[in-house]
């Protein structure tokens, strides 16, 4: 994790993120608005480096899938995981989660 001082005084950190999504036909995961590249179809996984600047980390998953599909989402930042599980109730929807940066050791 590399930290640097922002011009405005905020501290940003470049962190390594690993995500996986199992369930919907298509899905993408954004961490603080930054896309995490993934491969796969119904079972997808990927990783990448993103820049975080807030005390909270916003994770959004956008998906297309059949109603009733069970979705398992795992987000790991600096090796610390957060996991979510839910059932798709719309064919196209966004689920948003917010975690304290401290949960990831930031």
């Amino acid at each position: 994790m590399a930290k640097k001082a922002h011009a405005a005084g905020r501290v940003t950190a470049t962190v390594h993120v690993a995500v996986s999504v199992d369930g919907p036909r298509r899905s993408e995961v954004f961490v603080d608005g930054q896309l995490i590249p993934m491969t796969g179809t119904f079972k997808r996984a990927g990783e990448g480096d993103v820049e975080l600047a807030a005390a909270e980390v916003g994770v959004d998953i956008v998906l297309k899938g059949q109603i009733g599909t069970e979705t398992a989402l795992t987000v790991a930042i600096n090796g610390r995981k957060q996991q979510e599980h839910f059932v798709t109730v719309q064919e196209k929807e966004i689920r948003s989660f917010t975690y304290p940066s401290a949960d990831f050791g930031l």
């Binding site: 993408e28 954004f30 608005g33 491969t39 796969g40 997808r44 990927g46 956008v62 966004i94």
Partner: peptide, 28 residues
């Protein structure tokens, strides 16, 4: 195993705004 990830980066939009949601939807 096609690389399905889209090219969009939605950080340019405020999270939770309609523009941000539109950007997320475009990715799929």
């Amino acid at each position: 195993d096609p690389h399905l990830t889209a090219d969009d980066s939605c950080r340019q939009f405020q999270r939770g705004t309609p523009q941000y949601r539109d950007c997320l939807f475009r990715s799929v």
